[in-house]
Design a protein around this nucleic acid. Sequence first.
DNA 1: CTGCCTAGTGTAATCGATTACATTGCCGAT
DNA 2: ATCGGCAATGTAATCGATTACACTAGGCAG
Lengths: 347, 347
Amino acid sequence: MVTIRDVAAAAGVSTATVTRALTKPETVATPTADRVRQAVQDLGYRPNLVARSLRRRTAQVVGLVMQDIETPHFMSVCRGAEDALREHSYSATFCNTDDKLDRERAYLEVLVDQSVAGIIMTPASATESDLGWLHDRGLPVVTLEMELSGAVDSVYSDNQAGACAAVRHLLEAGAARPACVTGGRDVPSAQDRLAGYQQALRRAGLPLEPDLWAFTDYREEQGEAAVRALFALPQPPDALFLANSRLLVGALRALRALGRQVPDDVTLASFDETPLMELLTPPVTTVRQRAYEIGQRAAQLLLERIGGYAGPARHITLMPELIIRSSSIRPDPTDPTDLTKLTDYSQ
Amino acid sequence: MVTIRDVAAAAGVSTATVTRALTKPETVATPTADRVRQAVQDLGYRPNLVARSLRRRTAQVVGLVMQDIETPHFMSVCRGAEDALREHSYSATFCNTDDKLDRERAYLEVLVDQSVAGIIMTPASATESDLGWLHDRGLPVVTLEMELSGAVDSVYSDNQAGACAAVRHLLEAGAARPACVTGGRDVPSAQDRLAGYQQALRRAGLPLEPDLWAFTDYREEQGEAAVRALFALPQPPDALFLANSRLLVGALRALRALGRQVPDDVTLASFDETPLMELLTPPVTTVRQRAYEIGQRAAQLLLERIGGYAGPARHITLMPELIIRSSSIRPDPTDPTDLTKLTDYSQ
DNA sequence: CTGCCTAGTGTAATCGATTACATTGCCGAT
DNA sequence: ATCGGCAATGTAATCGATTACACTAGGCAG
């Protein structure tokens, strides 16, 4: 392996000069810099990033601590962050917490041990994620999914507003008793989406019935179970709001098994747009988050902090967008102009 | 920050003994080891992984170099690999090549610079990916998606067999002129899936018509364009085989725009099972790869190499599974027992 | 002409853990 | 009693790059 010493020898300078020529060329005489560059070329020298990290006490690596990269939304977030980081020669290390505090903690510790330059994370708990511990170490952090992250930079996709818009729409489109299936009880995004649902109900003057919402792990199986349970109620809901795309899959399975038709028997809206949403029958109304952009912006904020920005915490809020499709619109048998009746959604 | 020196001082031993007590406890007297453990506890010492990596000349990190983590299949592969790696205290760094050789090369170099312990990769090109370069550096590598990777360990999901099975099924289910939309011309998995398609045609005694296959970047847009082009042919196909799930999305968009009904006008089969496939109308026949397991097995092979295994290259082949659903079965108007006719797939 | 400043470069310490090699002391064999 | 051998521990070199500090030479002001 060719080291900086070899380059120094080849260029007839000291190792210090090599470093300077490569990282701060303006501090080195032009002909010297040229000789160094030539030697680097000739020998195929590449700096050992581990040694650099040790000396600088920080690696050109950022930790991405997410609920679950298998969720389409987070894949896109990661991809957005990764692309932005790569542009600045940073690498990304991914950690899946599955929204479990102990896993979150363990990963954060490993990341600290690896001297990462910063962390982008979706806190597993609104109250118990230990951001202070990171902050004390002077480690830049950007949180996602937390509306008010206090002293920490954050990118927030307005979950509450998105959920509220979706549920208001369900109500306006004919629903009388919408239910909500959300994520974990302590999970910030799950709380906010439930809060949005409740806000919409209150706004419409409807009572809040705790039977009509369910906490899950944001996965298909628990989504399916939750929907089955909702339809086992004495008074089942006539509309469903699903707090992410995996819960939607579970819900669709449950509805199919129960023989309930969408939108005739139940109307439906879901968080998270994916390419297949418009291709389902009926197409599904979704709340679209700009996932890629969330990742990108988070990376930018983080890179600025890493670069030394020491100003007050910045909070970026991105508004999600409601994409209305026919799953959420109850066909009105009394309205002959109701477009939804023109399409046959049977099966 | 508490270093090994602090621990040594607190335990009244040398730093060498601390290291030994922590990594090879059997070489240290029990009471000494206890004192060291106690000191570690008291001080909250955590080894600096960067320093360790520098000295050991290898980091507890593995590079995952994939086409694109935004593809559901690779997400699962990554998740499988990551879970297996974490169990052995390795971290994963992800790199998206988008099947471009220059990106692949750049990422491999960065990974080498970071002293990763090994690499799991889907080569961007069957012929030009520079595996030898890695091998020369003694870096363990596991390839995915390459049937015969020579001297390098590999996990192969039998793309050709999977594609062949799907196309045979299309033919048996009534198709006469199936088309194939695959990935990039040099991309191993894309080649193999096309080869499987061709194999099925040959087997059925059908001619190979180059007009009936198309190379793409494995993304929705090019999938849509390819399908539109196929249906602009003087003699359009009556069945489509899509080489991944993103191409399927593009195909469905194109078919909808063209007003072609599935399975009446065209039958359909796609590589890659995702949770929504069974929920589409009609449900889509897919070739299911055991993506999570592919990642897991690859990680295991790699960890064995990292652990010193020096035997001959191992090649694991996983057989994908054909999941037959109604998208691929052409309703037969002359057969009164044809079950597919019992379901109304209109719109 | 002297002294100060600066540009350019070199020397050597440093980051923190690991490990080759050296040392100590004890046991059992001769 | 002596010595080989081994268990337990310490000393110090090492991994490769960065950087604090030191030095030199030339330019310029006084």
